[in-house]
């Protein structure tokens, strides 16, 4: 009785969010092809979001590289009593999943949360109204620069984080499991190819586009007051996280299907 009301309410709000997301996407894409360029705002956003997050990404992906080698080595020893496949397994796993999803999730908690709370605060303090009154287009002024900056940053960060993860994986493999660097890289080349890089690139592109848009939708729908901003930010991060994980699954399927295994 009460559950079905809650459930239909939940579905309704999610559908509404989705439609708003879709509308925003249309407007932003329109500007990509025909609107003002806003290079200054884009650069500012890249510096603010892209560069600031770099240290966190380096630390977390470095540790990922350390851990993943240990894990894979253990599993290989247990199952086939040989560790020669460490580079291959690591490479696949990093390029297809970890190297892509970890930076994306860090961007969610960084750029995503910041964007929602920024726009939400602007709404509750009437700054959005002030912009409207000055006939400044909110999508063009607030969303578009962050959209472009997010795509650019996440693609670069993903490539960078893949590099860092593999580098640290290589270090562990050479120190603890006596791989020579050349040997490791050769083995790696056997298992991962250009296709995997393209796949990682595509995923980063999609995540980079989706995260700022979802965050902005939640910001624009923010309720009045500090609590409203808090709730909107939480919801934005939760939705973004779920969407990243869900899309990762879908994109893995799609890219395997398009590019071949």
């Amino acid at each position: 009785m009460k559950w079905d009301v809650l459930f239909s309410e939940f579905i309704k709000t999610k559908l509404k969010t989705f439609f708003e997301f879709y509308e925003l996407l249309k407007k932003v894409l329109k500007q990509v092809f025909s609107g003002p360029r806003r290079e200054h705002e884009i650069k500012t956003a890249i510096v603010k979001f892209g560069l600031q997050i770099l240290p966190i990404i380096v630390i977390s992906t470095a540790f990922t590289g350390l851990v993943i080698t240990q894990e894979i080595a253990w599993h290989l020893r247990e199952s086939i009593h040989a560790i020669s496949m460490i580079p291959g397994f690591t490479g696949q796993f990093v390029l297809r999943e970890l190297g892509v999803v970890i930076p994306a999730l860090l961007v969610v908690s960084n750029l995503g949360a910041a964007l929602t709370s920024e726009i939400g605060t602007m709404k509750t303090t009437d700054q959005l109204d002030a912009l409207k009154l000055l006939k400044i287009d909110l999508v063009s002024f607030l969303v578009y620069p962050r959209f472009i900056a997010s795509i650019f940053s996440l693609v670069c960060l993903t490539m960078f984080s893949i590099f860092v993860t593999l580098l640290f994986a290589l270090v562990v493999a050479s120190l603890q499991y006596n791989f020579s660097w050349l040997e490791y890289l050769n083995a790696l080349r056997h298992f991962v190819g250009f296709k995997d890089v393209v796949c990682a690139f595509l995923k980063a592109l999609v995540f980079g586009a989706v995260i700022p848009l979802i965050s902005c939708v939640y910001g624009f729908n923010c309720k009045e007051g500090a609590q409203g901003v808090g709730t909107a930010t939480t919801n934005s991060v939760v939705t973004n996280t779920l969407v990243v994980i869900g899309l990762d699954f879908v994109l893995t399927y799609v890219s395997t299907w398009i590019l071949g295994a």
């Binding site: 920024e118 303090t125 009437d126 700054q127 109204d129 002030a130 912009l131 009154l133």
Partner: peptide, 14 residues
């Protein structure tokens, strides 16, 4: 062509 002074000021804080 409108201008408004808002009760909450609504200055662009960035």
């Amino acid at each position: 062509h409108l201008g408004m002074v808002f009760q909450k000021n609504a200055l662009f804080d960035f």
